[in-house]
């Protein structure tokens, strides 16, 4: 039995509604798959940064960055619930499927945002906390509320939100921002358009149904394929820069160049894909490879860093 407030009881549609949301539903609001990428790249920033951080504080920093990223995911799901309900890829998310009410998701997202930023500031430093707060703001407000529904360049600019974590990890150790951390930022920033437009190509109909101006819907397949190619080349180039700047070895440079060549090769596959292709196999292959690519590049940087520290590097 539960005691209820009469006004609260009158649910959204006037009917009495009591939540059946589980803890798993709330966890789903955090976009765990995106969070895993954020954790990994933030960890890379933490490992690659010069200097020392207490391991306990390092774990807390990663936890805060992960929760902050998850909070921005929850705010994104709160704002986008209307279009998520229409798109096949997102229709089963907790809000459109009715498991969590929008205001619950909003409160959840805001609370986690505040806690993650405050704890990162208190435990580590306020620059990294400020960067985390800006990342959450950028993703939830600049990307989700403004850019996503207003420009086909939405994910180019919005991609910055996903690119900040290694910079935050770096700032946790050094207390500052440097050329190296900007290069780490640029790797994910330049990678995002090719990754996301590959998805947008084979989910074109979904985006068209909800009126989100993704590049394939606005500028057409041909322009999108060319832009994917441009960003794949830029990503391949920037991924080699750590070797050129001397914070990664020649061995990493060769590895990154090979990975980048494959990235460009998959993009050429997309470029050659016939207009109106329904199966869009090359786009799906590029999308899958792009995820592997980013993990491999950051893993490569960390392994290289460990090898240099052990005196085994090229």
């Amino acid at each position: 039995m539960a005691i209820i407030d009469h006004h609260e009881a009158a649910g959204d549609g006037g009917d009495f509604v009591l939540s059946e949301a589980t803890a798993r539903d709330y966890f789903e609001l955090l976009k765990p798959r995106v969070m895993s990428l954020v954790v990994f790249t933030a960890f890379a920033g933490l490992v690659l940064a010069p200097g020392h951080i207490n391991p306990v504080i390092g774990v807390i920093a990663i936890l805060c960055i992960a929760v902050g990223a998850g909070a921005s995911g929850a705010l994104n799901m709160w704002y986008d619930a209307d279009i998520d309900a229409v798109m096949s890829r997102t229709a089963k998310r907790p809000i459109p499927s009715g498991r969590i009410r929008p205001r619950e998701a909003l409160a959840f997202g805001l609370t986690l945002s505040a806690f993650s930023v405050a704890i990162l500031g208190l435990a580590v430093n306020w620059l990294s906390a400020g960067l985390l707060a800006f990342t959450i703001f950028f993703y939830a407000v600049i990307y989700t509320m403004w850019l996503k529904r207003s420009t086909p360049q939405n994910i180019v600019i919005g991609g910055a939100a996903g690119a900040f974590p290694p910079m935050i990890g770096w700032a946790c150790v050094t207390g500052g921002v440097s050329v190296e951390s900007i290069v780490l930022f640029l790797i994910t920033f330049l990678w995002t358009p090719a990754h996301f437009w590959a998805l947008a190509l084979f989910k074109m109909k979904d985006y068209a149904d909800v009126g989100v101006p993704m590049l394939p819907n606005v500028a057409g397949e041909k322009t999108t394929k060319h832009q994917i190619m441009v960003y794949a080349v830029l990503t391949a180039i920037i991924s080699v820069v750590p070797s050129c700047l001397g914070f990664a070895s020649l061995g990493y440079g060769i590895f990154a160049a090979a990975m980048g060549a494959f990235f460009v090769w998959y993009s050429i596959g997309v470029l050659r894909m016939p207009e109106g292709d329904r199966a869009m196999v090359p786009a799906k292959k590029l999308f899958a490879y792009s995820i592997f690519y980013l993990f491999a590049i950051f893993a490569g940087l960390m392994i290289d860093h460990a090898l240099i520290a052990a005196g085994w590097s090229l």
């Binding site: 009469h6 009591l18 059946e20 589980t22």
Partner: peptide, 20 residues
């Protein structure tokens, strides 16, 4: 004051949320 009887599913999900 008004009261309501929770269904088993609601009780189970509330317990899960409280534990979390």
């Amino acid at each position: 004051m008004e009261t309501v009887t929770l269904s088993d599913k609601q009780k189970k999900s509330r317990r899960g949320r409280n534990i979390a």
